[in-house]
Amino acid sequence: MRILAFSDIHRDVDRARQIVSASADADVVIGAGDFAICGEGSLDTLHVLRDCRCDVIIVHGNHDNACEMADFCADWNLGHFLHGTAVEIDGLCFAGLGGEVPSRTDHVWNASESEERAAAMLAALPRASVIVTHTPPLGHADLQHDGTHEGSAAIRDYIRQQNPRLALCGHIHNAWGMTGTIGDTRVHNLGPKLNWFEI
């Protein structure tokens, strides 16, 4: 399976159009959150991405309105909004968890989950081949510009326990393009460029 993945396009309609064009060569497109900016405008790019020619899996970022995105996907046959949920495509299980874990800001628009809540949601997921989260796992592809790690312990622990083949995330802009491994799992902080994976 050929996967095209990205994160953090933050209302960039031109980038969304590039993704749609590239989707002709993909089996699945994955968006790991932050389509909006400060809670506004996630539909700007989602309306464009609806033209993708394959299944599209999305999770919400901390800038996104999760309910708005879930509603948008409700009548999109190829669109799959995941948050503590999973979908099977061509025999592979994709699981997702959106938002910032844990919350690191008190902005009213910031979509987040506590580590405890995230752990409970992840524990309820089936075993996945690909885990898609907005927040990186703690200590992996989560390095801030000041040298601190701002990932999630719950996501890290899920990956250690379940050993998916691929973990895709975004959120920490300084870590875009960073990679790592947890056990046999490849971890990638995507960023807004077009990232290709084969599984």
Rank of each mutant, 00 (worst) to 15 (best):
I3T: 05
L4I: 09
A5L: 02
A5G: 09
I9W: 00
H10D: 02
V13G: 08
V20R: 07
S23C: 06
A24V: 05
A26T: 10
V29H: 00
G31H: 05
G31L: 03
G33Q: 00
D34E: 02
A36Y: 10
C38Y: 15
E40W: 15
S42N: 12
L43C: 04
H47W: 13
D51I: 12
R53F: 07
V56N: 06
G61K: 03
H63S: 12
H63K: 11
H63N: 13
H63R: 11
A66K: 06
C67Q: 15
E68Y: 07
A70R: 09
F72D: 05
F72G: 00
W76D: 01
L78R: 15
G79A: 00
F81S: 09
A86W: 00
L92Y: 11
C93K: 10
A95M: 01
A95D: 01
V101Q: 02
R104D: 09
H107N: 14
V108P: 14
S112T: 12
E113S: 15
S114V: 09
S114Y: 02
E115M: 12
E115T: 02
L122Q: 00
A123W: 11
A124W: 11
A124M: 01
S129P: 02
V130K: 09
V132K: 12
T135D: 11
P136E: 00
P136S: 05
P137H: 02
G139F: 05
H140I: 14
A141T: 08
D142V: 00
H145N: 14
H149K: 09
R156A: 11
D157H: 08
R160L: 15
A167M: 08
A167G: 13
G170S: 04
T179G: 11
G180T: 04
D184E: 14
H188N: 13
L190W: 04
L190E: 01
K193P: 10
K193Q: 15
N195P: 02
N195D: 01
N195V: 10
I199P: 12
I199L: 13
